[in-house]
Design a protein around this nucleic acid. Structure first.
Length: 775
DNA sequence: TAGTTTTAAGTTTTT
DNA sequence: CTTAAAACTA
């Protein structure tokens, strides 16, 4: 150790500094929430370059999200500009980079396109012809899962993912089909590089030479395949440093293995461990509340975070009647604070479990004039018109892409129906040729032939525009028997001209770069016009979205490389639109965001909403999955710096139906000494139906029937909403609903332990004892 | 085969 | 309630 440190090491505490200065053996940094791990990684990168004289290009730092990668690059560059030359990528983008260069060793053309989940499902449904969509989706998920665990179709352990024998077969056929197409899915971006590194020692050696330092952020989110990739990238002299927090592992559903972090010292022998337990973000009551919940988990390393900030206001729990009141509550709190100049809009974040829950807040905030932005739910790239456009572009790059082909060959209608499409695809598979050629190798109706020719022309024109020449394609192929009569030529020319004409008056504005050819393609193919007419019918703004896509494309060069890059960036970073994001960040707005998306962020004031059992945690979660939900709670709560709110509603509208709900299990797990309860919840943790709360608030009277609103069925059955009950098996609870059924009145009871039961009032009513008064 | 109408189904979380 | 798939008609 030295007596004095470079100035950029001064702000670090001793553990952080120790982590930065550590060299030699593998290092595991257990970094609790808000303990400054990004600062440690970025400082370490700068230190390695400055003090150890490392070539920045020999440093590889891997993250899980593009946002994290960008932020890391930015912050490292601030310490030392040379850090900009280090390779900072997500695992998947690193995999893509690797495969563009070395994919040929796995039989992959460098011009591959990355399939997203939807594309995978499309391909799979053509393999599983007679299966229901849900089953196809399930299989797609399992295949993706298998790849996360680095399991090939003939791996005996495949049964762990799916014990159905058919699964192995389908997986195998899926892989064959993907190989034939020449594209990859997300899992391949990790799995294939590992396979290449294992089988090609020359490549492995090159990589071992290239990267002398490898760092992994959010290591608790790594899956088995990613662990293998890390292992293969490490040569005998590679310095490995991983950073993570087992309590923040929230991506198990897509294969993340907490074991990776728990077993790191075994897998990388002689590893050192440094713990960062000093928390700089939150006040001590917030930390305590968050920890008290995650403490209920069994499988964890365990740690004790110290709050540098010390004391602060207690987190507040608000019992509310419904999600409308919840939205008002948030609006009130935020507005009051901002009006008093105690905070800015951007100091506030409203957190929820599912994207669907954002809608209520959006309408309320809109009405109240509260500026907000919704993070993550930007389903821009999932929109029909965008997927259509991307399919057109993907097909230019890879004319074997049957998924893209199926999507756009007959859109707008060109007279090529399902039967014809199948024939063309089959011909391609059989002759091992691409789909630009296979049309000429099969018998088609006149109508289909003409349509296909039009389509081919559109594609070839676009290729000409971009100077793409993937293996000199069909147009001059003498074997292509499709006739192209004068008449038809004229006709198609006319329509193309007409299309252009009609679009001149419209909103698609010409741009620069890649957008020039993309725009031409969108117009020539008729996709622009197709969605324009859709807009007129349904009042959407699909054309506007296409324009946005064009704006994005204008950033790229107008050639094959530009197009490839454009497609890859979109597949790997759906939140791309950097400019828009930057602008949003500058704007002073409240953040609406899912719990998952908050990882790595922090806000002065956080409201965690929808803390109801069934919503959060979801009611199908138990054991391991419940533990993951708890970690999700922990992640959300530890985002808060100064102030934290929890809200829970007595009823919630879901899929158009209004459901009575119970407070989340997590609410009961929060340490009472760091919780302030707000609102009227006379029964402790049991929520009342809405009518109750309101009634109670307004009149303070004790009896429900004073309302005079006891329904006929309640009279008849002898049960009414709000009645407290006791049952030998389930304990105390409250009647939520009395409903008519074939067998007489049914009573629905929510128990204090979160369980929900129904019983027939006549037959099973005896097992339920009416207890106490229900206010 | 294309386009319209009716019916059913479904909402985690993401690279 | 919204969206996707199926069924139906032209």
């Amino acid at each position: 150790m030295r007596d004095s440190y470079p100035p950029y090491l001064e702000p670090l505490n001793s553990e952080q500094r120790q982590a930065v200065l550590h060299t030699g053996k593998p290092l595991l940094i257990l970094a609790g929430a808000g303990s400054g791990k990004t600062r440690v990684i970025t400082t370490k990168i700068a230190w390695l370059i400055r003090e150890r004289g490392l070539d920045p290009r020999s440093i590889l730092a891997v993250t899980f999200t593009n946002k994290a990668a960008r932020e890391m690059a930015e912050r490292a560059r601030q310490i030392d500009v040379r850090a900009g030359d280090a390779m900072l990528r997500t695992f998947h983008s690193f995999g893509a980079w690797f495969l563009r260069r070395n994919g040929s060793l796995a039989g992959l053309n460098s011009g591959f396109v990355i399939y997203d989940d939807d594309d995978v499902v499309s391909l799979l449904s053509s393999i599983m012809e007679n299966s229901a969509k849900a089953e196809v989706k399930h299989t797609a998920h399992n295949i993706s899962r298998a790849k996360d665990y680095f399991l090939t179709p003939d791996d005996p352990e495949l049964a762990v993912i799916d014990h159905d024998r058919k699964f192995r077969d389908i997986y195998k056929r899926y892989e064959e089909r993907m190989a034939q197409i020449g594209n990859v899915d997300f899992g391949d971006l990790i799995k294939k590089p590992v396979e290449i590194l294992r089988s090609q020692s020359e490549v492995a050696r090159r990589f071992h030479e290239r990267f002398s330092v490898i760092m992994v952020d959010e290591y608790q989110d790594a899956n088995v395949a990613q662990f293998r990739l890390l292992k293969e990238l490490c040569g005998p002299d590679t310095y490995v440093c991983v950073v993570g927090d087992d309590d923040q592992s929230i991506y198990r559903f897509r294969g993340a293995e907490v074991k990776n972090i728990l077993e790191f010292p075994d897998r990388f022998s002689g590893a050192d461990i440094i713990r960062l337990e000093q928390n700089y973000r939150s006040t001590s009551p917030i930390l305590k509340a968050a920890s008290s919940v995650v403490d209920c988990n069994r499988g964890r390393l365990g740690k004790k975070l110290r709050a540098e900030k010390g004391d602060g206001p207690l987190p507040v729990l608000a019992y509310l009647p419904d999600q409308n009141a919840e939205a008002s509550f948030c609006a009130d709190k935020i507005e009051a604070s901002v009006n008093k100049r105690e905070s800015k809009w951007s100091d506030w974040a409203v957190l929820y479990r599912t994207n669907a829950q954002s809608a209520g807040f959006e309408t309320m905030f809109l009405r109240r004039g509260i500026p907000y932005r919704v993070v993550g739910s930007l389903k821009f790239y999932e929109r029909e018109e965008i997927k259509d456009s991307l399919a057109l572009l993907a097909f230019l790059v890879n004319p074997r892409d049957e998924v893209a082909f199926r999507r756009i060959v007959n859109k707008p209608a060109r007279g090529i129906g399902g039967v014809s499409v199948d024939k063309i695809v089959e011909a391609a598979i059989e002759n091992n040729i691409d789909l630009m050629e296979s049309g000429g190798k099969t018998e088609l109706s006149q109508k289909a032939k003409k349509g296909l020719n039009d389509f081919y022309k559109v594609i070839n024109d676009a290729k000409a525009c971009l100077q793409i020449d993937n293996n000199a394609v069909s147009i001059s192929d003498p074997q292509s028997p499709i006739p192209d009569s004068k008449e038809k030529k004229n006709k198609s020319k006319k329509t193309a001209a007409k299309r252009k004409e009609s679009h001149k008056q419209n909103r698609l504005k010409s741009g620069t770069g890649l957008s020039v050819c993309v725009e031409k393609l969108l117009i020539d193919s008729g996709i622009a016009e197709y969605h324009e007419t859709q807009d007129e019918i349904s009042g959407n703004s699909k054309i506007g979205n296409l324009q946005e896509l064009l704006n994005g494309a204008s950033e790229y060069s107008n050639d094959y490389e530009g197009l490839l890059k454009f497609l890859e960036d979109i597949e790997l970073d759906r939140s791309m639109k950097e400019e828009a994001d930057k602008q949003n960040n500058l704007q002073d707005t409240v953040t609406l965001i899912t719990f998952h998306n908050t990882k790595g962020l922090e806000f002065k004031h956080v409201i965690m909403t929808g803390l109801e059992s069934g919503i959060f945690p979801r009611d199908d979660k138990k054991d391991d999955e419940l533990e993951e939900e708890r970690r999700l709670f922990y992640v959300g709560a530890t985002r808060a710096m100064d102030e934290l709110y929890f809200t829970t509603c007595a009823e919630r509208r879901m899929f158009g139906r209004t459901m009575q709900t119970q407070p989340s299990l997590f609410i009961r797990e929060i340490d009472r000494s760091c919780l302030k309860i707000s609102g009227n919840n006379p029964c402790g943790y049991v929520n009342r139906p809405k009518s109750f709360n309101t009634f109670n608030l307004q009149s303070g009277t004790k009896s429900l029937s004073a309302n005079g609103k006891s329904s006929e069925i309640e009279e008849r059955s002898g049960w009414r909403r709000g009645q407290r009950v006791f049952n030998d098996n389930y304990g105390y609870g409250a009647v939520m609903e009395v409903k008519e059924s074939e067998d007489g009145p049914v009573v629905r009871v929510c128990f204090d332990n979160g369980q929900e039961k129904r019983f027939l009032s006549e037959l099973q009513g005896r097992a339920y004892e009416k207890v106490g008064d229900d206010y």
